[in-house]
Amino acid sequence: MVATHAERPHALLSASAAHRWLACPPSARLCEQFPDTTSEYAAEGTLAHELAELKLRKALKLGNLNAREFNKRRKEIESHPLYSAEMDTYTDSYVDYVLGIVHSYRVPPYVTVEKQIDYSAYAPEGFGTGDCIVIGGETLHIIDLKYGKGVRVSGEGNPQMRLYALGALQEYGFLYPITEIHTAIVQPRLESISEETISVDELLAWGESIKPIAEMAYRGEGEFNAGEHCRFCRAKSVCRARSEQYLALEAFGQAKPPLITDSEVGEILRRAKALAEWVTDLEEYALQQCLAGNQIPGWKAVEGRGSRQYVDLDAAFKALIDAGIDEAVLYERKPLTVAQLEKVLGKAQYRQLLEEPGLVRKEPGKPTLVPESDKRPAITAKITAQEAFGGDER
């Protein structure tokens, strides 16, 4: 491991952002005008990837990783403020998935982890780092760990995975008789593994189809197009195309009939959901500008509501106990939730001690409205909206 994950360079047409620049080609160059900021969630994901890589290298005996070096690196990761015991559990799930593929072959397959992949034949100067590549028989496996838990990522038609597959095929295709591509996105915190299997011919045809779009993106040409792909765009807060899309809600006010149709309800909800996200992005941008000393007409940054913290918790409680306060008053005792216990016990012991004996039950969730693209099956006439959201019938 020469460079840490955070230190690695990134391409203009990165595979991880392909869903954006393929849908909105000029966004690739537009993002260059904004700093590449990171978040605690991203830093946590980076740490999880380093831990997963370390575990895989040890399990598969990759590189010159001896026990001393493994333990040293492991302690460094565990000392990181963002490390947690659950990170160990979740990265184990990813490692288990990879090992399951590796051990499914009678003859040991070729395996490499954190491999830099060049797909510049399809996207100018395009390169990225694949989490894990396995080549066994006639199948090329591309496996990606996603540690986030906010959005479930589909592996079907996923451009990031396909770009990695194109680069890997170009590098290894003359060495191995590859005829099939199998990609997998492993999201252990969402208990999700999304896979796709396509032929080499299908992959190559897709690669040729995106070439013109990638060329436009590299030159900063093409039409701006707002949509779900704006989520991780650096320009999303002040992008004019995005603002015009959401401000177009005003057009619904021109409708002649006194009642809007169900079709209009669906369209307004679709736009309003994205509008709420855009407003949040605008607020974050405006706050940053005000804190930097710039003016956003009609707005200013102020100090929010503060909170009180113990200077020294032990000293504070000792003072209370010495003053005659009953120690039992100072603590709140409550049982761990089922989810918290599962993390403490681990999935196997949790199932053995609680789930299998029937000591826990899964309650159905309340009905919730989601886009039609959501993978969960639709429900109808299960309960009324009144029962779901509360309130007295009149």
Rank of each mutant, 00 (worst) to 15 (best):
R305D: 10
Y246I: 15
C233Y: 02
A301T: 03
Q288F: 02
N294H: 10
R270T: 11
K273H: 13
E283T: 01
S263K: 13
L259N: 06
Q295A: 09
A301W: 07
K300R: 09
K273W: 14
K273V: 09
P257C: 05
L287K: 13
E267A: 15
Q288K: 13
I268M: 15
E244N: 11
R234G: 01
G266N: 13
E244L: 15
A251E: 14
R234A: 12
S263Q: 12
A301G: 03
H229N: 02
R234Q: 08
R305A: 13
Q288L: 06
V279L: 12
C230A: 08
V302Y: 07
G227K: 07
Q288I: 00
Q254G: 00
E283Y: 07
W299D: 00
T280G: 11
N294M: 06
Q295R: 14
D262M: 09
Y246A: 02
L269H: 05
Q309I: 09
G293Q: 04
E303H: 06
A292D: 13
Y310T: 11
L249P: 01
K236L: 03
W299Y: 15
V265R: 02
G298Y: 10
Y246H: 15
R308P: 00
A248E: 07
E264F: 03
K256I: 10
G266K: 12
G253T: 10
N294S: 08
A235Q: 06
P297W: 07
R305I: 07
F224C: 04
A251Q: 15
Y285Q: 07
K236V: 02
R271G: 02
A235P: 00
E303F: 03
V302A: 14
G227Q: 10
T261G: 06
F224S: 03
V302H: 10
R240G: 05
A292W: 04
R270S: 12
E267R: 15
A248Q: 03
Q289H: 05
C239K: 01
I268Y: 05
Q288H: 10
